[in-house]
Amino acid sequence: MEVTLRIFRYNPENGKKPHYEEYKVTAEPTDRVLDLLEYIKGNFDGTLSFRRSCAHGICGSDAMRINGHNRLACKLLVKDLHGGKITIEPILGLRVIKDLIVDMEPFFENYRSVLPYLINDEPAPKKERLQSSEERERFDDTTKCILCACCTTSCPSFWVNEQYVGPAAIVTAHRFIFDSRDRGAAERLKILSGQFGVYRCHTIFNCTEACPREIEVTQAIGEVKKAIATGDLG
């Protein structure tokens, strides 16, 4: 089948304004959007820049806005786009460096701000810090995050203010706040109850819709809100 890709293009070095370019390619229904981008780069236009690494939905490099929805280009098949024109743009809310590549630094700054590591100053037990299966289950969903930024950059609250830590950082915080071995919950909840914390979330659910790992992002944010309100980590 023939499909048309309409791709956002921006090159800071050629003086042209950001614009869209169209490419016609022949595609198999089971081609991934990433395959089409590779095809265009390899055959039509080598200047097209986009991030990619594993092409398996694991590494989270190729988040982009495809027909208005944040998706990983390597997980979306042509047949699931139901024909017509495919519009591909960089994820929103972060500065575009070139074509589909954005500056991820503000995103990672937000991520770092929630102390994304295990905090526990108690002396380590002889063998290990034990955790039951149920305790592990408590934060299982949020361990799946691959920091692709699909959620954060689909969030209107983040578009308005990039100082808002955003869904991905809250998901990461959730993963530690509800980890029975961690002792940093109070500190993280304090950060997240601040001006740029969870209360910027207006329960819009864009994040949940966008997550390629099917994490219940909005629910995780809700649980953090509840923990702040009640002080209960149950």
């Binding site: 090159n11 800071p12 070095e13 236009d45 080598g46 200047t47 820049s49 460096i97 070139k98 074509d99």
Partner: peptide, 12 residues
């Protein structure tokens, strides 16, 4: 040689 001589994120 690369397809084009731009410098920023020129993966080629």
């Amino acid at each position: 040689c690369a397809f084009d001589k731009h410098r920023i994120y020129n993966y080629e």
